[in-house]
């Protein structure tokens, strides 16, 4: 597994060395036209409502060990999204931390945990914004979580070893977040020549490319925490699959 990982990472490094572009994070306050800001709020709202319901179920009904693990998943999002990490493109961006919780608890609770971090950063750090919160929640807390969950399930089903499945889940969730961000911006600001796709290429080269090595860092950090859980939190992991909360079956 390590060997494969190393090969993948090394090739990633070489593919993206030539790019020199600044990276970015969430969509800044006021930087989506009101119509688009409203559309993304409307899209995210049902997910927020259902996510709240799922989160409440866990907090009210599940054993303490599981709840504490949920706090750890939330804390992981807190730490990772505060770390602005340099990328080989010569700028900084940050991981999202959504992958870990989505693999453990499924995507729904992560909608809320991710949103809490986004609200914190929008209100106290002027990163992202309240008008753009709907769009940022959608890219990070919704798409990120569902991609991680889906990727993990698919990887397990196709016999990918446990550690690498976790890596893939977090890696792809991180990338997906920033690809969605590019799509959101390109939708709101199509190029006068080439329209949506020309704009998508522009935003994509900024967001997604810078994000690649950072996605790898996030994947590896998630694997570290997951390895710990597999050795020391066996009971909780078993409970999680029993409740069918996360992507179940963590062995392998």
């Amino acid at each position: 597994m390590q060997k494969r990982l190393r090969v993948v990472l090394a090739s990633l490094l070489f593919v993206f060395l030539p790019f020199t572009r600044a990276g970015a994070m969430h969509i800044a306050e006021g930087f989506l036209p009101a119509r688009w800001a409203g559309i993304w709020w409307a899209v995210s709202l049902p997910f927020l409502i259902f996510g709240m319901k799922k989160l409440r179920e866990i907090v009210e009904e599940k054993p303490t060990g599981v709840k504490i693990l949920l706090a750890v998943a939330g804390a992981f999002v807190f730490v990772l999204s505060s770390l602005k990490i340099p990328s080989i493109t010569g700028s900084c961006s940050h991981p999202t931390g959504i992958g870990l919780g989505a693999v453990l608890f499924g995507p729904w609770p992560m909608v809320i945990l991710g949103s809490i971090v986004l609200i914190f950063q929008a209100l106290l750090l002027a990163h992202g914004g309240i008008t753009t919160l709907g769009a940022n929640v959608f890219s990070m807390a919704i798409v990120g979580g569902f991609v991680a969950y889906g990727a993990y399930k698919l990887a397990k089903k196709t016999g990918v070893p446990g550690g690498f499945s976790v890596f893939l889940a977090a890696f792809l969730a991180n990338l997906a977040t920033y690809i969605v961000t590019s799509v959101q911006l390109a939708g709101a600001f199509p190029a006068s020549e080439g329209g949506f796709f020309a704009a998508l290429m522009k935003f994509g080269s900024v967001f997604a490319v810078t994000q690649l090595p950072l996605a790898a860092v996030e994947g590896l950090l998630t694997v570290l925490v997951f390895n710990f859980l597999r050795s020391y939190s066996k009971d909780e992991l078993a409970q999680l699959s029993e409740f069918q909360l996360g992507a179940s079956s963590y062995e392998g």
Binding site: T20, G23, G90, S91, C92, L185, F207
Partner: peptide
């Protein structure tokens, strides 16, 4: 490289 935290870059493209 300047290693700026570049929400600014996206704003520049906009």
């Amino acid at each position: 490289a300047s290693f700026g935290g570049a929400d600014g870059e996206a704003e520049g493209i906009i």
